[in-house]
């Protein structure tokens, strides 16, 4: 589904290379996790895949179902089925959460040549999904993420994911800033979306999240590369011994 091949990325404004040849394939129906120390390039990978400005791809490719996503605008990647749950969801004063979501859902549908969702239908669907994530009517009415707590922002990300039904979900440190209850809620939201046709790439510092969202494959990233790949036990090893052993092992 998602194929990243020898991806090299520089920061546009500085002469600095962040990703130095990332190779990664996420299959439909699977959950891949990426762990790694600070500054290893995990968040950069998620931003480059989502199409954020400020990065320059110098080598390699990334495709979603065979289509080159690096050539697409961010909105085209979204319509193609890619979703990034932000580490720091952006506050947008003046834009209602509901308006935002409905605009996004219908823009994607339109881009795919599908019929737009009516206001009534949208309301019905969002109410049900919001309820599962314990998002109340007030949160739906308020401006996007404005005044939301850390946990509310992350739940709002998952709500967007549930509404947009992407095929490839990237979660960038979704566990950061969450207490145990919020993490459980968010994980349940993610697990509910796990289906045969959908792939997940979960970026996290900690094993904790992976107790709730059980990965099929775990990758360790360091200095802009995937240095080790294994099963769920690899995350446990990191939890127990830190990254030092693994880094030493591949050095």
């Amino acid at each position: 589904m998602l194929n990243i091949n020898n991806l090299h990325v520089d920061l546009e404004d500085e002469d600095k290379t962040i990703l130095k040849g990332v190779n990664l394939s996420v299959e439909a129906g699977k959950v891949h996790a990426i762990m790694g120390p600070n500054g290893s390039g995990k968040s950069t990978l998620s931003y480059v895949l989502a199409g954020r400005d400020g990065y320059k791809v110098t080598e390699g490719s990334a495709t979603l179902d065979g289509d080159d996503i690096l050539d697409m605008e961010p909105e085209e990647r979204a319509a193609a089925g890619l979703f990034l749950a932000f580490q720091y969801p952006v506050e947008i004063p003046g834009v209602g959460n509901m308006t935002f979501l409905r605009t996004a859902v219908n823009a994607q549908r339109k881009a795919r040549g599908e019929d737009e969702m009516s206001a009534a239908e949208f309301l019905k669907v969002i109410r049900a999904k919001a309820k599962d994530l314990k998002i109340d009517a007030d949160m739906l009415k308020r401006p996007v993420n404005v005044g939301f707590s850390g946990g509310e922002k992350k739940r709002n990300e998952i709500l967007q994911m549930a509404m947009l039904e992407p095929r490839m979900c990237i979660l960038d440190e979704t566990d950061s800033g969450l207490d145990v209850d919020a993490m459980k809620l968010v994980s349940e939201g993610v697990n509910a979306l796990r289906t045969e046709g959908r792939g997940f790439l979960v970026i996290t510092h900690y094993q904790r999240l992976l107790d709730h969202i059980k990965p099929d494959v775990v990758h360790i990233m360091a200095d802009g590369r995937i240095i080790k790949t294994g099963g769920p036990e690899l995350a446990l090893e990191v939890e127990k011994n830190g990254y030092a052993d693994i880094l030493a092992e591949v050095a």
């Binding site: 506050e91 004063p93 003046g94 605009t103 823009a107």
Partner: peptide
């Protein structure tokens, strides 16, 4: 730019996203 990217990452085209943010500014 951050807000614009966030909207676009959700599939809202550049023009629509700019308009939404402009209306939000005037709100």
């Amino acid at each position: 730019d951050e807000a614009l990217f966030y909207l676009r990452a959700r599939g809202v085209p550049h023009g629509t996203a700019t308009d939404l943010l402009t209306l939000a500014f005037l709100a």
